[in-house]
Write a protein that binds this DNA or RNA. Structure first.
Length: 225
DNA sequence: GCCCAGGTGGGTA
DNA sequence: TACCCACATGGG
């Protein structure tokens, strides 16, 4: 159960940002996995362009991508950056799903959460963030994916331990908030991080939750003496 | 021209 | 185990 401050933070974020339609729309789980791999360390705009190129050239199925030439996958992804790594990952992941899991991702997502998570992370190029995004948005699992914004914002807001690693931040957020809110917590912290709570800024002047932010007080104290 | 966007795996101490 | 680095493009 969130305490008053934690509850208020979520309430303000809900009023500040609107949730995207895609979050609750049905999406093929394999497509979700591929998009999420492309999005790794990449701006949304470039992710979209790369995925569009890939979709035009190939059917987004384990069969089609496992049998595609890696060079051709890479060319589609070029516009997004990190294209050699991701081309290799996408081909390999598709091949593994095809050969080891009969070309089906959904049975993995039907496993208990921890087992599904572990299984996804055994795919080379799929780390905790990518696994959790697929689990949350396509597997209907109770996890909070921690991307760079979620990590930074959670720590500044005192929602997660300052030196916590991925797992510590994820567990902290999952403990504070209700599973029904996990998707909102994930997305709203990202939107907040992008708009107000930037990595290069020690604090955010226009931030709508400034008064609830412990690091804002630290900053104020430093500035005033 | 420089910084920012923003995950994973491999190497090293 | 904890840190450091390579991967790569597009936009402001």
């Amino acid at each position: 159960m969130p305490d008053d401050r934690q509850k208020k933070i979520l309430e303000i974020l809900r009023k500040t940002f609107t949730m995207p339609k895609w979050a609750t729309s049905a999406e093929d789980s394999f497509r979700r996995l591929i998009v999420t791999i492309i999005s790794q360390n990449t701006a949304d705009r470039n992710t979209e362009r790369a995925f569009e190129n890939l979709s035009k050239k190939f059917k987004i199925t384990p069969e089609a991508l496992a049998n595609a030439k890696q060079k051709e996958i890479e060319q589609c992804l070029r516009v997004g950056g990190l294209y050699r790594n991701k081309g290799k990952t996408i081909k390999q992941v598709s091949k593994t799903i095809l050969e080891k899991y009969h070309g089906e991702l959904d049975p993995i997502l039907s496993m208990p959460t921890e087992q599904a998570r572990k299984t996804l992370m055994q795919l080379k190029g799929v780390g905790p963030k990518t696994a959790d995004v697929v689990l949350l948005f396509s597997g209907n699992k109770n996890v909070v994916p921690v991307d760079t914004h979620v990590n930074r914002v959670s720590k500044r807001l005192g929602l997660a331990p300052q030196k916590g690693n991925y797992e510590a931040v994820r567990k902290a957020l999952q403990t504070i908030y209700n599973p029904t809110d996990y998707m909102q917590v994930h997305l709203l912290l990202i939107y907040h991080g992008r708009k107000y709570c930037k990595a290069r800024l020690p604090q955010c002047p226009q931030c709508p939750i400034n008064t609830l932010c412990p690091s804002r007080n630290l900053f104020t104290q430093q500035k005033t003496g």
